[in-house]
Design a protein around this nucleic acid. Structure first.
Lengths: 134, 134
DNA sequence: GTTCTTGCAAAATATTTGCAAGACG
DNA sequence: CGTCTTGCAAATATTTTGCAAGAAC
């Protein structure tokens, strides 16, 4: 999957900023903050442009946003294909602050008290990642 | 449990703002935003004071913060006594935006890929709550 | 050429910090 | 009284909006 195809698939115009964001995220293989994306691409875009590009990509389900408690905002590519009842999780490392999507790892939300209907979920697991454990 | 005892237990000074926050949260039985807490208490406190009070209470493990993607920040009383390996979840209703701690509901974080160590987690389940389903 | 996107300026929000006055214990 | 907390002012940071110029298709 490459930036151009992704944009085409979602009927989004191909712009330098969007392509940059997507290729940064595709090659990073982890969630990146606006700051991190910025440092990975050439063009120097206005902050407004980033906000709007992320917003558009999220609305079209290309990306999703991960908010860590302390206000850290990161973005990641949305992988499709999960069963609706299986949800995926994110992992944030307390040492290196890397946020990654645990794509291979899905879980089923256990049954809630009666009356509650689950539509969606966010599971953020905090701990120490593989690299930092060594 | 009442505000005064909670503060005493954590060796925190008893101030009107802290007591107000705690009694608002204790009686609400759900997570409240700064705004909501403000409307539930008499005194008119500066925003800075709220920020600092929440911060202190969180640092002392009296409260915890729940951040919903869209930037909504809520606070809730921390209930102690869970087993370390069992984590608790929050539920946010997409209709009424109520955020509640599912205290009776605990889950065990499934095993992660090797190398990852779980220390903590945040599970935010999104859906429709009991009241809004009816 | 029409529509969508960008950059810039500016507003609206949110959060943090320093400091002097005041409350707590 | 010594220490911690509050209110105020102000500095930062974050996010949103309007509008004209430019790019995409």
């Amino acid at each position: 999957m490459n930036p151009i195809d992704i944009l085409k698939t979602h009927q989004l115009k191909r712009t330098v900023c969007r392509e940059g964001i997507l290729s940064a995220l595709l090659s990073a293989n982890k969630a990146l903050s606006e700051e991190e994306v910025k440092s990975k691409i050439d063009g120097n875009f206005d902050r407004t442009t980033f906000y709007r590009s992320f917003k558009t990509l999220i609305e079209h389900n290309v990306l999703h946003k991960i908010v860590v408690d302390e206000g850290l905002v990161k973005y990641a590519i949305t992988i499709v294909g999960k069963t609706p009842e299986h949800h995926h999780a994110h992992f944030v490392c307390k040492k290196c602050h890397t946020v990654s999507c645990l794509d291979a790892f899905t879980f089923k939300v256990p049954n809630l008290p009666s009356g509650y209907q689950t539509e969606d979920s966010d599971l953020l697991i905090k701990g120490v990642c593989k690299m930092c454990t060594i």
